[in-house]
């Protein structure tokens, strides 16, 4: 649908307003958030945990889904954010939730830079192994630096102030939930802008063919490092949210298990799409919560079966497969 208008070299814009899709995304998040609030008023802690993990999975999607870097150590970025926010409060008495979040963002970004410098020296399987080595090192560091982190006892004594001096972090988790929703919405909108930007396009190119990108005069490693820092900031936001909402940081925030689960959630929802990352997190964590309560002995079996089913029958992930199905139907009906 391209029209060249009277000698003027003008291409029409592609179909489908991206702004409209942003708006739909924001509305969907708000609707789900409201539904969660209404349906599970006693379970806001779980919902807030989902929000924090969603930020981790979004962050992972940036490097894995958009740039093609496979990693099993992404919780290093999340955990760094959680510990930074927690340490600010527990050791320095900086209890403002916004400052704590900023601390988490900063620490996540620094951890992202560190991981990028080490991981981007390798490709493929060696890169994956480096990511595992990194998460073990982060975990061990947090374990050994127990005077700062509380070690295996966890970091306690986190006491965030009221948001805007009005909304206390209450026992029921109302404030934490709304704080988390607000963070997720802000991050979601910023990431939508990012993935559409020239830089987002460059990263998609790197994922497909780094050599081609080099032949265009751009450095894939420089771009990936930048994306890792951004990804770290996003994961750090999630970590900070986790520290603020639970008021404790445990070592498993920095664990291999957390990293692997994040990757599982991303694949479940669909890589390379922000909606996929969100859907995967929501489905996995609700499923895990529901099945583990319904059948505490076999819930891991059921999670395993779900994963195999998705990978075999919906290899693009649940959201990715659904999106492909609907876009085919739309094209078919035209």
């Amino acid at each position: 649908m391209t029209v060249a208008m009277n000698n003027q070299t003008t291409l029409s814009r592609p179909r489908g307003g991206s702004f409209k899709r942003d708006l739909i995304g924001v509305i969907v998040i708000i609707v789900f958030a409201a539904l969660g609030y209404v349906l599970f008023p006693d379970n806001l802690a779980l919902l807030t945990r989902i929000l924090a993990v969603a930020l981790l999975v979004l962050s992972l999607d940036l490097v894995t889904g958009y740039c093609g870097v496979a990693t099993l150590g992404h919780a290093a970025l999340f955990g760094s954010g959680a510990y930074a926010a927690g340490i600010l409060s527990a050791h320095y008495g900086i209890n403002d939730p916004f400052l704590m979040t900023m601390g988490g963002i900063g620490a996540g970004a620094v951890a992202g830079l560190l991981c990028a410098v080490i991981m981007l020296r390798a490709h493929g399987l060696p890169q994956l192994v480096l990511s595992i080595a990194l998460i073990y090192l982060f975990h061990e560091f947090a374990n050994k630096a127990s005077s700062w982190t509380g070690g295996s006892d966890g970091l306690a004594g986190i006491m965030p102030d009221a948001v805007f001096g009005i909304y206390e972090f209450d026992l029921y988790g109302h404030t934490a939930y709304f704080f988390g929703i607000a963070l997720l919405l802000i991050v979601f909108v910023l990431l939508r802008i990012l993935v559409r930007s020239p830089f987002g396009m460059l990263c998609r190119g790197i994922k497909e063919d780094p050599l081609r990108i080099r032949a265009m005069g751009a450095s894939p490693n420089a771009a990936l490092t930048k994306m890792y820092v951004i990804s770290g900031a996003v994961a750090g936001t999630g970590g900070a949210l986790s520290a603020i909402s639970t008021q404790v940081v445990a070592l498993d925030a920095l664990s291999f298990t957390q990293s692997a689960e994040a990757l599982v959630m991303l694949v479940l929802g669909g890589t390379g799409s922000l909606f996929g990352a969100l859907a995967g997190t929501l489905i996995f964590m609700l499923f895990e919560d529901y099945v583990s309560a319904a059948n505490p002995f076999h819930w891991l079996t059921m999670v395993g079966v779900l994963l195999i089913a998705v990978v075999l029958f919906a290899p693009k992930g649940i959201y990715g497969t659904a999106a492909a199905y609907f876009s085919r139907r739309r094209e078919g009906s035209q």
């Binding site: 020239p198 396009m201 930048k226």
Partner: peptide, 20 residues
């Protein structure tokens, strides 16, 4: 082509906007 033009003009690292 947009990416190539952006890269040549030093704008391929921009985090917002769209070449469109």
């Amino acid at each position: 082509v947009g990416l190539a033009v952006l890269q040549r003009s030093g704008r391929a690292g921009r985090l917002f906007g769209s070449f469109l």
